[in-house]
């Protein structure tokens, strides 16, 4: 997702932004880029979005899903997600509720590429001393929506200061964000989870030396559990800082220090890495 919107058209900067996340090995083909440049503008216009961002790709067995996310005024809650199989035709993704997201975490296996595919989960519970099977079924479209919401919650990040919260409680891009300094850019404390602040503990953030209530309204990723769920690397020296989520393989975030350029892209299978504690 390319989050910056400094009056720039997101789809036009897409090609440039793709270059920075390409170190993880996933790119878009010229055909896909050309299609996206066209269809994203039309999608934005149809929905009267204030900003529309290309979010990434979820790879299925027989086809891939391309995901776009549009937002109106409130950058965190006022948003809608779309998926496309061919980068041309966009379909609205359902808004996942808590139950749907709970159920989606039970489903294992790769996405198939068919939105109407039914995933099934069988749980054997003991009822009055007898084994009974409980089925949970879920449509692939719903699982897709839930997984994207999970990824956004766990791994959508922004550099500190890129978004601010106005006294009215509206979260919007900070127009005077000039990028992190080189020293700050290699620290995990400088990156914040771009998710609802309900999860914020508020305890540690308020203890930082340069605490600013309008900027520090999000959780820093340095508090993530387990410790070390992010890989932070300087590519091209300090000219490009790249963060990769180790929980969601395929999520790459980039930031060019001292410039307002940052963004992230998810290109993966849509399955989280449950083995991380063993892998560190």
């Amino acid at each position: 997702m390319i989050l910056q919107d400094k009056g720039k058209m997101e789809s036009s900067s897409l090609t440039q932004d793709m270059e920075f996340t390409a170190g993880s090995g996933a790119v878009l083909s010229p055909e896909q880029k050309a299609s996206l440049q066209m269809s994203l503008i039309l999608l934005k216009n149809e929905n009267k979005f204030r900003g529309l961002f290309f979010w990434g790709k979820i790879m299925g067995l027989s086809g891939d899903y391309y995901i776009a996310q549009g937002r109106w005024q409130h950058a965190l809650s006022d948003r809608k997600r779309f998926y496309s199989k061919d980068c041309i035709k966009w379909n609205l993704l359902p808004e996942p509720d808590e139950l749907m997201r709970e159920n989606s975490r039970l489903m294992v296996g790769r996405f198939t590429g068919d939105p109407s595919h039914e995933f099934e989960h069988v749980e054997i519970k003991k009822v009055n001393g007898q084994d009974e099977e409980f089925f949970t079924a879920m449509k692939e479209e719903n699982r897709l929506a839930s997984v994207i919401a999970d990824i956004d919650d766990d791994a959508a990040i922004i550099p500190r200061g890129a978004y601010l919260r106005t006294p009215q409680g509206i979260v919007k891009p900070n127009k005077s964000f000039e990028g992190l300094s080189i020293a700050d850019a290699t620290k995990l404390e400088s990156y914040l989870h771009f998710r609802d602040m309900a999860k914020m503990s508020g305890k540690e953030v308020s203890q930082r030396a340069d605490f600013n209530k309008s900027l520090d309204f999000l959780d820093p990723i340095s508090d993530d559990i387990p410790q070390g769920s992010w890989s932070i690397q300087s590519e091209r020296g300090s000219g490009l800082v790249v963060l990769r989520s180790l929980i969601w393989f395929g999520l790459t975030f980039y930031h060019i220090p001292n410039t307002p350029q940052y963004g992230f892209m998810y290109m993966g299978s849509g399955e989280n890495n449950k083995d991380l504690p063993f892998m560190l």
Partner: peptide
């Protein structure tokens, strides 16, 4: 590979 959506930036 770029046609297939795999690879790095051309400079890399």
């Amino acid at each position: 590979f770029e046609q297939a959506g795999i690879g790095f930036s051309r400079e890399e």
